[in-house]
Design a protein around this nucleic acid. Sequence first.
DNA 1: GCTCGTTTCAAACGGTCGTTTGAATGATAC
DNA 2: GTATCATTCAAACGACCGTTTGAAACGAGC
Lengths: 232, 232
Amino acid sequence: MSLTEARQSPDTRERILDAAEALFVEHGFEATSMRLITGRAGVNLAAINYHFGSKEALIQDVFRRRLTWLNEERLRALEKFEKEAKGAPLKAHQIVEAFFGVSLRMAADTVHGGHTFMRLLGRTYTEPSAFVRQFLADEYAAVVPRFKQALFRALPDVPPEEILWRFHFMLGAMSYAIAGTDALQLVSGCELDEKDPGALARRLMPFLLGGLRAPLPEQAAKPKEKRPRRAA
Amino acid sequence: MSLTEARQSPDTRERILDAAEALFVEHGFEATSMRLITGRAGVNLAAINYHFGSKEALIQDVFRRRLTWLNEERLRALEKFEKEAKGAPLKAHQIVEAFFGVSLRMAADTVHGGHTFMRLLGRTYTEPSAFVRQFLADEYAAVVPRFKQALFRALPDVPPEEILWRFHFMLGAMSYAIAGTDALQLVSGCELDEKDPGALARRLMPFLLGGLRAPLPEQAAKPKEKRPRRAA
DNA sequence: GCTCGTTTCAAACGGTCGTTTGAATGATAC
DNA sequence: GTATCATTCAAACGACCGTTTGAAACGAGC
């Protein structure tokens, strides 16, 4: 244990993380008790406090395990496009692809837990708990400014404030599409096609780009412009 | 009390509903204890069980108080357009206006609690709790099919399945824009302009319509069509 | 005055929560 | 073998949960 780098208790930690991730999606943070988690994971109740320290720390580790990689992947995708562009502004669809495409690909992974995690993540954007919000803000601190700046360059005619709003709208559309998959299907009255997870990306990306490039609102932006125009 | 139709205990019920509504937005359902609610409302702990029966029933009444009216208002707006159209299909922007415009107007009301409620509602779409989901499904049962059918008629060239997805995306974009107002602004790094609640509607409506009318995804729909086309 | 139904109140109920404890267990090094 | 360390375990801790209770307070009708 001291000499080898391999984790001791090879399963326990991961089993707890897997069980917690799934249960958080099913019931939310508050309604998921540690006894429920350890019960599903098949480990002792005290194992959570032993391996993670507290329930809050467990929640953060559930996110960290996948979110760090996700955000790195988003940056890698963005930088690949930037390298290809050789200093020229990116296309809007490339930026959207780098941010949301990576997310949607993770959400399409139903075998390694990516789908479960993305549902949890989408739900957590509206999570009221203060420490979760702070944690998410820290995790996104490195990636959001990069994408903001890329969008500002890609859409020089659109007021930056408007771009931020639309980025916000896009995030909401995607999060709901992933997280609310069973909540709103009750409203829609059918299951749509959940079998093919890749279908979501094919359907969502055009919607996002259509919204991002929609005509500007009339009263917003500089008043010198009278008629709405295409944003990009 | 038995003769007059006026409610007894004129404040207590409403004070509890107001306090609960605000606290549910701040902390979520599970994390909001009845002692917290009654404490803020300035009433006795037992008042909730006396007036509502249980915490679950209180949650439902918090929604019913405003949601019933909201959905009726949505239907009224839709029927007004339908009357004007005299049997012709509505325009997509009218349907979007009837559904989302009414919601956004309620969300712009910061003095009578409409804003608070819409934040709560948006958050609750992703609420995992089973009874809340069932309750929402019941409340929306009368209104969703009407809007679905109106959209199908308005966009005859778009596959119905695609319309449902985009309706779902629009709902997500709006809910996040309202509910996540402080959650994601931390990510965005600024407060945007929260002073003017009407600004949200002016910014969101073009985005929604842009998404709804975006070109269709390539592989979706009937395969006889090769190139993507405008949806409306 | 008294009565009766509604509403409020302080106190307690059993249960579950997250966390801690101290002893058992297991594997490695000597 | 013994010593040492990380890990697991059953049991308990105090705190808080939603709910119930029975008495007190209130107000309208007579």
